[in-house]
Computed example of a mutant assay.
Amino acid sequence: MARLTTIGETMVAAAVGVGPELEITKFVFANIPGLVHTAPEPANEPMPAPAHVVHQSAPTGQGIIDDNRVTYAKMLTTEIGNFSFNWIGLVYTHPVNGDQLVMFAYVPLTQKVKTAGASVGNVIVRNMVIEHLGIANGVPIVVSAESWMYDFSAEIAAISEELTELKERVTHKLVHNPNNYTAAGAAQRETIVFDQGQSKTVTLDAANLIAGDVIEVHKLAKAGRIDIVGTVNIVLPNGVSELNHWLPAGRSGVLIFECVAANQLRYAGGF
């Protein structure tokens, strides 16, 4: 259960009175070793040690529930991770004194993972409500909110679209002797096999591949030449980058490429 710190109580009381408005700067997530989440939460709770902070960022949204309650929410979306946390805090960053802990909560150890390749990360939403007589007049918030604070419809729709796209991808796709083939994220692993001896081209479309995608180009016949062309430069182990790789005439073999991040390709091995 979240509680105000002594500093937080002072700030809220001042904001409701004649002091400056209380503006929550950020949510802080920490993983504090040995913390028992069912232990009493003391009013003099300090900020966690920097080494224990695993994520911090501005609230996703904030709103007024009624005159005496305001609420803040944070959505940790699928691109955020990987870390675990057992402590959450609301922080006001003073221009001189730095971070001031206003409210905090002990929580069960929770894991946050991000999307990696075809493995979809999780989404976590956390809300914290500050309750104090007249608090709505002491914060720079002008929008109302239900008790859950924030409409995540747009974010959830985007995540649902991402999940749908990933579900449509197959784990392994095998293609034989295509003509001017483009590897563009249809599968986590695409194997393109040439065994008829013609000269062909394979394009690696970096803009549509996802981190973790692997493309294998096999040349089984010695005749013909297979060119592999990246839409962005392909990074080699020695640090050199180039657009083109090829399997030459007179030889057979395989070249392997990997999408390592958004719009980034890497040569992963081969003959």
Rank of each mutant, 00 (worst) to 15 (best):
A2T: 06
L4H: 13
T5Y: 08
I7K: 06
I7F: 12
T10R: 05
A13P: 01
A15M: 06
V18T: 05
G19R: 02
L22W: 05
E23L: 12
K26F: 00
F27T: 00
V28L: 15
H37V: 10
A39F: 13
P42C: 12
P46S: 11
P46G: 01
M47N: 14
A49N: 14
A51I: 02
V53K: 05
H55V: 12
Q56G: 10
S57I: 08
S57F: 13
P59C: 03
P59V: 04
G63H: 04
G63L: 01
I65R: 03
I65F: 15
D67W: 12
D67T: 13
N68Y: 10
T71A: 15
Y72P: 02
A73Q: 06
K74H: 15
L76W: 09
L76V: 05
L76I: 03
T77M: 09
N82L: 00
F83P: 03
N86P: 01
N86Y: 11
W87L: 11
G89I: 04
L90M: 01
T93A: 04
H94I: 09
H94G: 04
P95L: 07
P95G: 10
D99G: 08
V102I: 11
M103V: 13
M103Y: 14
F104C: 13
Q111R: 14
A116C: 01
A116V: 12
G117L: 08
V123L: 02
V123P: 00
I124R: 12
N127C: 00
M128G: 05
I130V: 15
N137I: 02
V139Q: 00
P140G: 03
I141R: 00
I141W: 01
S144A: 11
S144N: 13
E146K: 09
W148I: 10
M149A: 13
M149K: 08
D151Y: 03
D151L: 05
S153C: 05
I159N: 04
E161S: 14
L163Y: 14
E168W: 14
R169Q: 05
R169M: 11
R169A: 04
T171K: 10
H172I: 03
L174F: 05
L174D: 03
L174Q: 06
V175Q: 01
N179V: 07
N180P: 09
A184Y: 07
A187V: 09
Q188D: 15
T191R: 15
V193P: 06
Q196P: 00
Q196C: 11
K200E: 13
V202R: 11
V202C: 05
V202K: 13
T203D: 13
L204N: 01
D205H: 14
D205T: 08
A206R: 14
A207K: 15
A207P: 09
N208P: 10
I210E: 02
A211G: 08
G212W: 00
G212L: 14
D213N: 12
I215E: 07
H218L: 10
L220C: 13
A221R: 09
R225N: 12
R225W: 01
D227R: 00
N233P: 07
V240Y: 09
E242L: 10
H245G: 04
L247T: 06
A249Q: 09
A249E: 06
A249R: 07
G250P: 12
R251F: 03
F257E: 10
Q264K: 15
L265H: 09
F271I: 02
